[in-house]
């Protein structure tokens, strides 16, 4: 008797990724560079977030040819993005055998109100969150892994920092609440009461929470690990830099040894130019991907 698609199997898969770096790739060649550099998984995309920003228009699930090409190129897990609420894109990716689906605000949402009911799927999902309310709603919908939303494709870490700090701080606050206060807190944050009680008891989320959205340097990766991230996603940062191989290796090492500052100093030498960043105040409300879902 065996069971597939259980919470333990889906969440466990994310546990195995801890302390690792998940890299965005757009073809087999980049996927191999990522694997060689020590990535724990790759995210197969048609365009990295910075290019999605530049291209404008509607961003959708990648062409399955690209996803397949990446799946055939590497032996590490392959993730892919589906639009928020796009049940069919998610089912297609599941049928293709993708190892993890990112229901992602980087793509243009297909549904402005509802997310996918993710516990219906055998494949696990990762979702973005900015606070404990979003985190717990996504978990209750069936997300097996979380990540900060940050502000993707900007090369600016400020939003990811804010989202990681917010979730951590809310968990600390929750631990000090009495049971009757948790009910009001649940109401105010739109968070499922029973899940809040569980988090209050355990002192942590029941799934891993990675950092994502704006990580551009090894020092950024280390910063997010110090703030309590279980691992990092690097999107545009690697293949928008001058020397992707070196950059990818440096980010992996900085994530493993995030508190070894001498090492991070060494890793940061002569990396070439990091991606050009964007200042948050220059983004119009429509350009803020993090606000595309609640």
């Amino acid at each position: 008797m065996s069971q597939t698609g259980t919470d333990r199997v889906k969440r466990g898969m994310a546990e195995m990724q801890k302390g690792g770096v998940i890299m965005d790739v757009v073809n087999a060649e980049q996927a191999k560079i990522a694997e060689e550099a020590g990535a724990v998984a790759v995210m197969a995309l048609e365009r990295v977030p910075a290019d999605i920003r530049a291209a404008g228009g509607v961003a959708r699930m990648a062409d399955p040819t690209i996803v397949e090409e990446v799946m055939n190129a590497v032996s590490i897990p392959v993730m892919a993005k589906a639009r928020i609420g796009h049940i069919t894109e998610a089912r297609v990716l599941e049928a293709m055998g993708v190892d993890y689906i990112d229901e992602s605000e980087v793509l243009t949402p297909a549904d402005e109100i509802y997310h996918i009911k993710k516990d219906d799927y055998t494949v696990p999902f990762v979702c973005g969150c900015r606070n404990l309310g979003e985190a717990t709603r996504r978990i209750r919908e069936g997300a097996s892994m979380l990540r900060t939303k940050g502000e993707p494709g900007t090369g600016n870490i400020v939003e990811a920092v804010s989202h990681m700090r917010q979730v951590q701080s809310q968990i600390r606050h929750l631990r000090g609440l009495s049971e009757d206060e948790v009910m009001v807190y649940a109401k105010e944050n739109g968070a499922p009461f029973d899940l809040l009680m569980e988090i209050r008891e355990e002192g942590r989320l029941p799934v891993v929470n990675f950092a994502a959205g704006g990580i551009a340097t090894p020092a950024d990766a280390s910063l997010m690990m110090q703030l309590g991230a279980d691992g990092v996603f690097v999107g545009s940062g690697i293949f928008k830099s001058n020397n992707p191989e070196k950059f990818a290796r440096a980010i992996v090492e900085a994530t493993t040894h995030y508190d070894d500052y001498k090492l991070i100093g060494e890793l940061s030498k002569d990396l070439g130019t990091a991606m050009k960043g964007m200042e948050m105040s220059n983004l119009t409300p429509e350009q803020r991907m993090q606000d595309r879902s609640q």
Partner: peptide, 15 residues
């Protein structure tokens, strides 16, 4: 043999 039971969707628990 690596990934011998398949990809993630084939991952399972058993007694």
């Amino acid at each position: 043999r690596r990934n011998a039971f398949g990809r993630q969707r084939e991952s399972f628990e058993a007694s």
